[in-house]
């Protein structure tokens, strides 16, 4: 089987889910992301920060009715890295199918 290259930043399940949620969107509010991932604020913040440090996600703050809201979006390098990661996952699954060792897909 050929070796596929995964993005170590995106590979963690929560960060992968964050990227997957943001992929079809222009941006998403922190609250919507937290609800979708079903994680606490601190866990989400930690993962967003790691993605932001890698240059994959950018954050924007806005104030509505005196309350601060945070919006997150994938950057262009983030989109490219996510697409590459998904392609690597697909190629792994596809090669397993081709090798005949996997019939569940």
């Amino acid at each position: 089987m050929k070796m596929v290259q995964f993005d170590t930043v995106i590979h963690a399940p929560n960060r992968l889910q964050i990227c997957a949620f943001l992929a079809p969107l222009e941006e998403a509010e922190f609250k919507a992301l937290r609800q979708a991932l079903e994680v606490s604020d601190s866990v989400l913040s930690k993962h967003i920060k790691q993605l932001e440090d890698a240059g994959y996600v950018k954050q924007r703050k806005s104030t509505v009715d005196g309350r601060q809201r945070t919006w997150a979006s994938l950057t262009d390098p983030g989109r490219a890295a996510f697409a590459q990661h998904v392609a690597a996952l697909r190629s792994l699954v596809d090669s397993a199918k081709l090798n005949g060792g996997d019939t569940t897909g």
Binding site: P13, L16, Q17, F21, A23, L25, V93, T104
Partner: peptide, 14 residues
């Protein structure tokens, strides 16, 4: 495969 399913599920939620 699990990761791909999870990706699909999150895109759907979005």
């Amino acid at each position: 495969r699990e990761a791909l399913d999870s990706i699909k599920s999150m895109e759907r939620k979005a």
